[in-house]
Design a protein around this nucleic acid. Structure first.
Lengths: 258, 258
DNA sequence: CGGCTCCGTTGATGCATGTCAATGTCGGTC
DNA sequence: GACCGACATTGACATGCATCAACGGAGCCG
């Protein structure tokens, strides 16, 4: 289906999309949202971007690494986190296909990025980014829009971390996953949990035990049901939304995971 | 001193800066960071921006309001917050002179904004913003850089809210205020607290009582000392940094408050 | 098959922080 | 000066979540 979309957006001859560079696909897809790309744009982008495959648990970069690249996830999932000197960890986001990361106008990354599952990313070298932005102003507008959305999600997460109870935190998290799933699978009630309980705990500012107990509480109330520990269903969507602190009129508004 | 800076950056004849529009100053100052503005740019900006004065406690906008403007704070201070349906509140940031707010590519603001002190803001109508960005590409680059910095600060705040103890939270907050103060007053040890204990509590995900007790604990350890309840001094800066979870080598890195 | 490790669940207990309440302090107003 | 309300501090007590510990299932390997 990715191929279809490229065909539609870039009515170029097939040779322009070099099959040995899988990043052409993501570059085209993620840039072209804000305007049609010409075929020669595509081949120029192909020359700039590179790709990388990550095994589960493999690091893309560390918090202190020099920030020299911007990445787009082509496939798989990644977690971002920050740590305190003594090892306490806060996961600041889970990213999936077509999400950006590494957007930092600083010399070092502000967080570490680690693959959750088998993941491929597409890399834009930062030293060529400025030139790229000058050449594709739509890309800059899009980055600004992404950053602004991420900022809004970050603020939601602050509300969650600072003011919600454990059960509300978990419900909010599952709500986000469910909204995200709705965009792809059509039922939107089935949720995959590609991360461990530990990751969820570090995302929600809890311990694994509390996450587990909150899952049990939601099961007991028949709001959710498990197929396997990594796959579940939302049974009572309205109650879930209520727990997550989402008012009905804005059910559709909140989509992004970060 | 604001005047000095304008003179330096915009060697235009004085009539270009209309004295009845105090926003000319902020527009010039905040846009011109990334490139010289010509005198006619300044007068064109004067025609677009308007200004507004807010009394302490007055709202600039509400979370659900249509997001039709971008603001720059000319003077004073503002708090941003989100609320849960039952009234629990999370302050997501305190803003001061020259900070931006309202940067949202959505139709509604993601948070409410309320003046802490007597505040003046400069308003850019959003419907003219696109055109403005097209005309001043440096402004777009600057907005992207600001958004990216705010994102980094938001992630710091998530680490704080999710993983730090009450005392560490307060120390981190005071550390930020102290870094910010360093940029202006030169000693950097004296800190003004323009917000109430309640505001600090809602920023740190605590209660006023816990904030108060944490202040007392820091006093007892002789890390800080109070002049008045709204004015204090940091006595033991290294210990403060340690509590805040900042490693020595990165003392200078963290500056922004959000 | 048995043993091992990793992950998740559940129970018992402790502690950091929330809740409730009393008191103090400062500014404003009559 | 007396009164009042808003804000801050401190103490006594309650509780939500962390901590510590036991157990069970799934995958892996000899």
């Amino acid at each position: 289906m990715t191929a279809n979309r490229i065909e539609r957006l870039v009515p170029a001859s097939p040779r322009d999309i070099q099959p040995d560079n899988p990043c052409a696909a993501c570059a085209v897809r993620d840039l072209s949202v804000c305007g049609a790309l010409r075929a020669d744009d595509v081949s120029r982008l192909n020359a700039i971007v590179t790709h990388k495959t990550l095994q589960p648990g493999e690091m893309l970069f560390l918090e202190s690494d020099p920030a020299d690249s911007l990445f787009v996830i082509t496939d798989g999932s990644i977690k971002l986190y920050k740590m305190l000197p003594d090892g306490r960890r806060q996961i600041t986001g889970f990213l999936f296909r077509s999400d950006f990361l590494g957007l930092a106008f600083r010399d070092r990354y502000a967080y570490s990025a680690e693959a959750l599952s088998l993941t491929t990313v597409c890399r834009f070298p930062k030293d060529r980014l400025e030139a790229l932005l000058d050449e594709f102003p739509e890309m800059e507008r899009r980055l600004l829009s992404i950053a602004s959305n991420e900022l809004a999600s970050a603020q939601d997460q602050m509300l969650l971390l600072g003011r919600k109870t454990a059960e509300e935190k978990l419900a909010s998290f599952l709500w986000l996953l469910s909204r995200r799933a709705t965009l792809k699978e059509l039922d939107g009630q089935t949720i995959d949990l590609p991360m461990t309980r530990m990751d969820m705990a570090d995302y929600l500012g809890l311990t694994i035990e509390t996450v587990s107990r909150s899952f049990s509480a939601l099961k007991r109330k028949e709001i959710i049901a498990f197929t396997t520990p990594q796959r579940m269903q939302i049974i009572d969507l309205p109650e879930m939304a209520a727990l997550a602190g989402i008012e009905e009129e804005s059910w559709e508004a909140s989509t992004a995971l970060r």
